[in-house]
Amino acid sequence: MIKWGKVWSDFFIVLALTSNVGFIFSHDPYQLIVAIGVNLIATVLKFGAKKILAAELLATALVADLHLIPATFLYFSGVHIPLAIGLAIGAAVANVISIVLLVVEIIFEYKSEEEY
């Protein structure tokens, strides 16, 4: 059976990466707004999860946010646009780590299910 709560949060974790990558290649302000909104939602969805890697997942999401928020300011203020793009790339790396952790967690869960 599919757990819809998990679909919901996984959806946003992956979407955070894809929208971020979209911004890196398009340099488009609309895409940036989508990216930061989705990243913030992905962070909030990780609040209070009591899984094995919950702390690590939350940490990576916070890293991505702390890259994207200054990136947004720099981008819309019109100065240092290359730096804004650089920060977005940093956020994308954090997003990739987040997805790797997600996969690791899925494997752990699968294993612990087997034991019982």
């Binding site: 302000p29 609309y30 707004i33 989508v34 930061i36 909104g37 989705v38 913030l40 939602i41 909030v44 969805l45 609040f47 209070g48 999860a49 009591k50």
Partner: peptide, 26 residues
């Protein structure tokens, strides 16, 4: 953590509607 957990969906809706509104206005 349970308190934080309860904040997930309320905060999510606020962020979602704020982003949506800014995008549509743009």
């Amino acid at each position: 953590y349970n308190i934080l957990f309860q904040l997930r969906f309320p905060l999510m809706t606020v962020i979602f509607f704020t982003t949506l509104s800014v995008l549509i206005l743009m």
